[in-house]
């Protein structure tokens, strides 16, 4: 508990450091560059000075940061021009969509990655190992936009199975009807809680392709890490001893070797979930999925400073929490670390 407390106490410092660093970086941009967020076309170019004045873009950096910090402490993270809503609202809107997609991709990635990583190590150099190696190589080699587009062309363009977006027009009215509650923002879960199975299946079908793309791309690394960690453990003395004692192979592999091989897998998984939750830009763009990644890239491209700070803050919080969870999991799988 003390360890967790220390880590959580550290969080405000991290957030302060991140925001100060961002403001410092932004100060390198001229007020005219920052005005580009509000001036989008040549018809508005005559008003650039007016815009700079209105948004206080010529104020000294410490003043601008002070204003932002004061408002942030009151819970106001500013207004994101790219999300067209306050930053806090944008996080509330976009994050559940990304969380839903991240979970849909993370769970199969970890399950399949660990499973096939273990099998690949156990059946080293057999056909299963070769097959997983092939999966790993193609997963590494295929850029997500190529795989995403291929899947979309086949499963949507050719076979009309899985459409892009978060849900189809057919359930659009149901999702936005007054009676449909959104307690979690995770549409699949909300649909179950509302008893709307038509919505559930529709949302789940829209998750298939982006989740499959992310799973395939991320599976490779997890699979390879699990395999090499398992191979290392399987070659150690304690495994030989366990086998010599006559323990069944499943116990040797599943209880002894796998447990020790999980440490790097946990590290990698924590990084994976952070990267998934921080937004998967290309996948969300290709599948027209309204998550945090699409917002992040728009905010960065258009120099939407409140948006960039909001998404960075979110990523920082996620990173700290994921690290904390990873540390706790280390202690679960390795009793020596509990001390």
């Amino acid at each position: 508990m003390r360890f967790m407390g220390r880590r959580l106490l550290f969080l405000p410092l991290v957030l302060f450091g991140v925001t100060a660093l961002l403001f410092f970086a932004v100060d390198f941009l001229s007020p005219e560059m920052r005005a580009a967020l509000y001036v989008k076309n040549p018809r508005q170019m005559a008003s650039v000075e007016d815009v700079i004045e209105k948004y206080g873009l010529r104020k000294p950096l410490p003043v601008q940061y002070g204003i932002w910090l004061r408002e942030a402490l009151r819970g106001n993270l500013g207004y994101s021009e790219t999300a067209r809503m306050p930053v806090a609202d944008a996080i509330r809107e976009f994050f559940p969509a990304t969380l839903e997609l991240a979970l849909a991709a993370f769970v199969p990635t970890v399950v399949l990655g660990v499973l096939f990583g273990v099998l690949s190590a156990v059946f080293k150099d057999r056909w299963l190992d070769q097959a997983t190696r092939f999966v790993a190589i193609t997963g590494y080699s295929l850029p997500s936009f190529v795989l995403g587009l291929l899947l979309l062309m086949l499963f949507y363009g050719k076979w009309h199975l899985f459409a892009p977006g978060r849900y189809s027009l057919d359930v659009d009215l149901a999702v936005h009807a007054a009676g449909f509650k959104h307690p979690t923002g995770l549409l699949c879960l909300d649909a179950i809680l509302d008893g709307r199975w038509d919505v559930f299946w529709d949302v789940a079908r829209h998750l298939v392709l982006p989740a499959a793309t992310l799973t395939y791309i991320n599976l490779a690394l997890l699979l390879r890490v699990t395999r090499s960690a398992m191979l290392e453990e399987l070659g150690k003395d304690y495994v030989r001893t366990a086998r010599a004692k006559g323990l069944p192979e499943s116990l040797v592999v599943g209880r002894h070797a796998l447990r020790n091989a999980l440490i790097p897998v946990i590290t990698l998984s924590s990084l994976l979930i952070v990267s998934l939750l921080g937004g998967v830009v290309i996948t969300e763009t290709i599948f027209d999925y309204p998550g945090i990644g699409r917002w992040t890239v728009m905010a960065a491209q258009e120099l939407d400073i409140p948006g960039v700070i909001g998404t960075t803050l979110l990523a920082s919080v996620l990173f700290v929490i994921a690290n904390l969870c990873a540390d706790l999991l280390y202690a679960v799988v390795d009793p020596r670390l509990r001390a």
């Binding site: 399950v111 399949l112 076979w159 009309h160 199975l161 057919d170 789940a204 079908r205 298939v208 499943s250």
Partner: peptide, 29 residues
């Protein structure tokens, strides 16, 4: 069944069965 095969079989079914359920042709708007 060997435990690993069983694990493999369960995982396969967990993924396959919902996939089959999800594979309904999409109705165009």
């Amino acid at each position: 069944q060997r435990p690993l095969s069983r694990l493999f079989s369960i995982a396969f079914r967990c993924l396959l069965l919902p996939s089959v359920a999800l594979c309904r042709p999409h109705a165009a708007g």
